[in-house]
Design a binder for these strands. Structure first.
Length: 263
DNA sequence: ACTCGTGTTAGCTG
DNA sequence: TCAGCTAACACGAG
């Protein structure tokens, strides 16, 4: 689920976990908490507090008053859950009903506060990740705050497909598969076009449409609200011109584009 | 029954 | 050095 817009919503939930004394931590999921052995994250956090919640791209991290930072990544389908002393969810919108019964083992990481509330990483697929003192080296600047000039030089620095450049988190942080397709569709650029062959006007148009797509997704509650997203399927048609949508693999990911406008 | 997928990363290959 | 592929994670959807 999560791309930059969804992760920003998760960060706001995480704010509800700040300034509460940490009584216990369950860090026993060795995959989600790798490379930390069980107990290592707990030892670093218990007795302290989370003091700030940050985000760059899809990566979140909390400052603490114990000298550590706590990295939180949602992977493909992770969710941040924060509860109050009554065990009620806080910080999110209206709680959407779960289709399937929620299995306790899908809580991959838990921080228990002295007030009885909790912060949990809920993640069925186990693709999320919790790390102590994560390095942000190698993570590009946030996709939301990038100058046109910086965007142009970063994207066009390689001959890879332009979609692969958008997805590369070291180039810019926050663009996932759906946002990449939405942005390229809005800009009418073929996803497989070599990035270093794009003209300046194409790169600037791509940047403007990335900002528009991001702004729209954040305002409407996530990438699923993108204009072309619902047309990414066989028999789908371009919502602008009506031409057939094409499908293929670009940058190693499933990709849909308009056969006429993004030829 | 079987394939695909909103993400990341280490390891391998040409 | 760069670019592309694969496996691993584990579940839901079609």
């Amino acid at each position: 689920m999560p791309e930059l817009p969804e992760v920003e919503m998760a960060r706001k939930v995480l704010v509800e976990a700040l300034d509460r004394e940490i009584r216990a931590v369950d860090d026993n999921d060795h995959w989600v908490c790798r490379p930390h052995p069980p107990g290592e994250i707990a030892q670093a956090l218990v007795g302290g507090k989370l003091t700030a919640a940050h985000r760059r791209g899809k990566t979140m991290w909390c400052e603490t008053d114990t000298g550590h930072t706590l990295g939180v990544h949602l992977g493909m389908g992770g969710r941040v859950v924060v509860t109050n002393e009554e065990g009620e969810r806080v910080g999110g919108g209206p709680e959407r009903p779960d289709r399937q019964p929620r299995k306790p083992e899908w809580n991959r990481f838990t921080v228990v506060f002295a007030d009885g509330g909790e912060f949990r990483l809920f993640d069925k697929r186990r693709l999320g990740r919790i790390r102590l003192d994560p390095s942000l080296d190698g993570l590009g600047p946030d996709a939301e705050h990038l100058s046109p000039a910086d965007f142009r030089t970063r994207i066009a620095r390689s001959r890879s497909a332009v979609k692969a450049r958008l997805l590369d988190q070291s180039v810019l942080a926050g663009v996932g598969n759906l946002l990449a397709d939405e942005t390229l569709w809005r800009a009418k650029i073929n996803p497989a076009a070599p990035a270093d062959e794009l003209e300046r006007k194409d790169l600037d148009r791509l940047h403007r449409n990335l900002e528009k797509a991001l702004k729209s997704a954040i305002a409407h509650g996530g990438m699923h609200t993108g204009e072309v997203i619902e047309h990414r399927h066989p028999d789908g048609h371009c919502p602008r011109c009506g031409a057939e949508m094409r499908h293929g693999t670009v940058g190693g990911r499933s990709t849909w584009w308009c056969s006429r406008e993004q030829a």
